[in-house]
Design a protein around this nucleic acid. Structure first.
Length: 281
DNA sequence: GCGACAG
DNA sequence: ATCTTGTCGC
């Protein structure tokens, strides 16, 4: 698919002031209300009910060990996309992967390898990774009903993190799931919480155009061990066309025993798989 | 100047 | 993000 808002594609050639100005435009165009193409309640990480199952599992041990795309998925289930990247530091290249799923079935996988120009700068992540991600979206077969990103959405200094930026440019519903907090203040202390626990993240003085009552996301404890070792929560924020509340619900529904939601995990594994193929050769 | 800072 | 062996626990 192609960008709907081609004038706002993150351009690494811009000056940092221009980047920030563009992010304010993105935040302005962003929608943090539920306008999904499907009922959010339908989004779940669940296997298709085994109806007339013709158990014929062709084992392609020659290729990948996991997630071999299966065309026979339940079309009534929402199409979920997970996006993540792997870096080839020495070569200054990024491998952007998108994994499409329905229920718990991987329907398709897309990968794009592109050059990396600007370094990572907190607050300007979309200008480093946005272009490469859009390159992968150009080759996507179907439009996802919801897309999960590694990073923030509205939980950002100018309320325009990676998930929001890509969401606005492609005009698709997106959610940002970050492993650490960029900005904002948790309503409650997030330390050592049980699985399923969550608290809202309020905007703080570092977030532009927002009062301290503005909820920019949530901290969500997606997993916790039964014993001593402690796992930190993930920070979920709406990207585009989803509310903060729905974003957490969807994220929770897409988790399956691990800290990170499945779409993200699959995309991460796929990007790593491709990266390995490069180093092996 | 000092501290904070998605991936 | 990435570099990496062993190691603690279920």
């Amino acid at each position: 698919m192609q960008p709907t808002d081609s004038k706002r594609i993150p351009d690494p050639e811009m000056s940092q002031d221009e980047m920030k100005a563009l992010q304010r435009q993105i935040a302005d165009a962003a929608c943090w209300q539920d306008t999904l193409s499907v009922n959010p309640e339908m989004i779940r990480w669940e296997p298709t009910e085994t109806t007339k199952d013709t158990t014929q599992k062709t084992i392609d041990s020659s290729t990948s060990t996991t997630d071999i795309p299966n065309q026979d998925a339940d079309e009534t289930q929402p199409l979920v996309a997970g996006v993540d990247q792997a870096f080839r530091t020495e070569q200054s290249e990024v491998i952007s992967a998108i994994v499409l799923t329905r229920g718990a079935t991987v329907v398709d996988r897309i990968v794009a390898v592109t050059d990396l120009s600007i370094p990572y700068i907190p607050g300007l992540l979309s200008f480093r990774e946005g272009g490469p991600i859009l390159a992968a979206f150009e080759e996507i077969s179907q439009k996802p009903d919801i897309t999960m990103f590694d990073g923030s959405g509205r939980m950002h200094y100018r309320q325009a993190g990676l998930a929001t930026h890509i969401g606005v440019v492609l005009d698709i519903p997106t959610i940002g799931v970050a492993k650490s907090l960029l900005c904002g203040t948790p309503e409650s202390d997030t330390a050592q919480r049980p699985t399923g626990w969550q608290t809202q993240i309020n905007a703080d003085e570092t977030v532009e155009d927002a009062d301290t009552e503005t909820v920019i996301g949530h901290a969500l404890q997606t997993r916790q061990y039964d014993s001593r070792k402690i796992i930190n929560p993930v920070y979920v924020s709406p990207g585009h066309r989803v509310s903060a509340t729905t974003a957490v619900k969807i994220t929770q529904a897409l988790c399956d025993g691990y800290k990170l939601p499945e779409p993200t995990r699959r995309a991460d594994a796929y990007a790593d798989e491709i990266k390995r193929e490069y180093s092996d050769n």
